[in-house]
Nucleic acid binder design. Structure first.
Length: 568
RNA sequence: CGGGGUGUAGCGCAGCCUGGUAGCGCAACUGCUUUGGGAGCAGUGGGUCGGGGGUUCGAAUCCCUCCUCCCCGACCA
């Protein structure tokens, strides 16, 4: 491709409304343009990248025996009413009516459509297991679309659905998809981690998310340094191996005027934060209050807390007014000593001796508090987020926390949709059996943004070879003035094309600096420069996107050199 | 949804407070010069000043209203 015949549309300045780096660079490099909130046009340059992501996914899904199909983006309301999700789904579901006043939605996902297709098409256990997938545009009417492609309303997704007669078969396909996803992400050339995830509202048992690692990621992931354990931070079990020491201090009440936060208290009393505990008050069932006790430096995990008996669902912190009314003091001075409401104590909080806590009286705290002596031995539970350095729940190694962007999710749906839509097959005994389903998604467009978040520098995007829109940039200096340069550039370009190299020749009549900047912004991994000066010495110049310096290459060696670079 | 901000040429912004009919840089177009890290000079084109309503002789500017986009907010103990 020559730039003169391509729509190269770079911006020197960063559009003001782009917040995160991938959004900025995608706009600047001319990959996408915004049409409306959460809606983007993929320009030719961006589409090349998107197609690469797609084709890697397609190849590996095909290798795994999955069958591609394509379902409508617009779906009839009847199907959603049948599954019950027409009611369940909130305003994220974009609903619309046709000219006959029939109701439809723009699909945010395709479980209903695939299950409907399946029940019409597949009749016998002999046809199972089977795994269908599509790469289709989805729409979710997000409250607050932001971060460009990262959280757009319309996005491209690969979604696959497998059908089975039994759990073993489902598990087998699930494991196979796990493998396939690992291959796909390996081929993307991105740093990623599969993590155990909460299957949440979707239901089902096993669930793994695939995260592309990036400092700007929205999700925190805990992973072990010695095993392949990795989990969403909300899901990781917080282990406490620490044994509690014997009481060493007497219980005392101290005045702590205006000391409310844990940091203030620790500072005021000159004690480490890990010797403090905090007592959070949550809403329980029947307007009760429930106390949750954590070590001062730990964070409550609301998902874990919600599962405790007697806690109101959805989880909610109690109203400060109500707390004051019932407990007689303000938040900030609450402690478990003498507390009469149901109390849950986190494992780590339960393992401290001689601790400091609120005295249930404003501006007073207890010091030297000991479990089993000053208050009952607690039933300890896991209600906190894991932190860096915690022991790994699988007993191997310690946890580190990194940030990631969720781009893939696989889970077992079980019979949620197949029973709602009556997707059955005849089994070996000629009896009708409800199928079990698995569901496997990859955010295709999000992969593009995630790749940029993970890999960029001040000059622009740094693509892995597998996703780069072009592999090689040819930058001739004075292409339009020097016949020598034009000849050399055109010859080499033709040669590359013959060999099927994805090459972009910059034949615009620009100054070199402008061309260099554009090629770097776009993130083309390899660059060859032809100049009259070099050619007269039988040389040209090579620079990799991440190389500090360029190197001179003999023209005669150029083809082999480039071959080697591109295949490495 | 609540709070804050914003909207002026393709992009980035000034002008608004203190009303007098719109400007700068980049980009685009033409010409000449220039050609190893986003060139110089000269010239040209491009605006319903987010929409609607109002005040006024006169509104980008003041008032009302609707809309857009962006940011913050669901972990304080």
């Amino acid at each position: 491709m020559k730039t003169s015949r391509f729509h190269l549309s770079t911006l020197k300045e960063t559009p003001a409304d782009a917040e995160i780096i991938s959004h900025q660079l995608m706009l600047r490099a001319g990959l996408i343009r915004r049409l409306a909130s959460g809606l983007y046009t993929w320009l030719p340059m961006g589409l090349r990248v998107l197609r690469k992501v797609e084709s890697i996914i397609r190849e590996e899904m095909n290798n795994a025996g999955a069958l591609e199909l394509l379902m409508p983006a617009v779906q009839p309301a009847e199907l959603w009413q049948e599954s019950g999700r027409w009611e369940q789904y909130g305003p994220e579901l974009l609903r619309l009516k046709d000219r006959h006043q029939r109701e439809y939605c723009v699909g945010p996902t395709h479980e209903e459509v695939i299950t409907d297709m399946f029940r019409r098409e597949v009749k016998s256990y002999k046809q199972l297991p089977i795994n269908f997938y599509q790469i289709q545009t989805k729409f979710r009417d997000e409250i607050r679309p932001r971060f460009g492609i990262m959280r757009a309303r319309e996005f491209l997704m690969k979604d696959a659905y497998s059908f089975h007669t039994n759990q073993d078969s489902l598990q087998q396909t699930y494991d196979q998809m796990f493998e396939t996803y690992s291959k796909i992400f390996d081929r993307f050339g991105l740093k990623y981690r599969p993590v155990n995830a909460d299957s949440g509202a979707i239901g089902g048992s096993a669930s793994n998310e695939f995260h592309v690692l990036a400092d700007s990621g929205e999700d925190a992931i805990a992973f072990s340094d010695q095993s392949d354990y990795a989990a969403n931070i909300e899901m990781a079990e917080a282990i406490c191996n620490q044994q509690r020491n014997e009481p060493g201090q007497e219980l005392k009440t101290v005045d702590t005027p205006d000391q409310r936060t844990i940091d203030q208290i620790a500072d005021f009393l000159s004690i480490p934060v890990v010797k403090t505990i905090k007592t959070l008050i949550a809403c329980g069932e029947d307007n009760q209050l429930v106390a949750l006790v954590l070590r001062g430096d730990h964070e409550l995990n609301a998902i874990k807390a919600e599962k405790l008996p007697g806690i109101a669902s959805p989880f909610q912190m109690a109203d400060p007014e109500e707390i004051k009314k019932q407990l007689g003091c303000d938040i900030g001075s609450i402690g478990p000593v003498g507390l009469t409401i149901p109390t849950f104590v986190d494992r780590s909080a339960a393992s401290i001796n001689d601790l400091v806590c609120g005295a249930n009286e404003n501006d007073k705290h207890y010091t030297g508090v000991n479990w089993g002596r000053d208050l009952p031995e607690p039933d300890s539970v896991d209600i906190r987020n894991v932190v860096d350095g915690d022991p790994s729940p699988d007993g191997e190694g310690t946890l580190s926390i990194v940030r990631g962007i969720e781009v893939g999710h696989i889970f077992q749906l079980g019979d949620k949709y197949s029973s709602a839509l009556n997707a059955t097959v005849l089994d070996e005994n000629g009896k009708s059996a409800v199928t079990k389903m698995g569901c496997y998604g990859i955010g295709v467009s999000r992969v593009v943004a995630a790749a940029i978040e993970q890999s960029h520098d001040d000059s622009g995007i740094i693509w892995p070879m597998s996703l780069a829109p072009f592999h090689l940039a040819i930058v001739p200096i004075n292409y339009h003035k020097s016949e020598l340069v034009k000849q050399a550039a055109d010859d080499f370009y033709a040669q590359c094309q013959q060999q099927g190299i994805e090459v972009l020749l910059d034949d615009r009549p620009l100054r070199p600096g402008a061309m260099f900047s554009d090629m770097e912004l776009i993130g083309i991994p390899h660059r060859i420069v032809f100049s009259e000066r070099g050619l007269k010495a039988q040389q040209c110049e090579y620079k990799g996107r991440c190389d500090e310096k360029s190197q001179d290459i003999d023209i005669d060696n150029l083809p082999e050199f480039i071959q080697a670079k591109l295949s490495s």
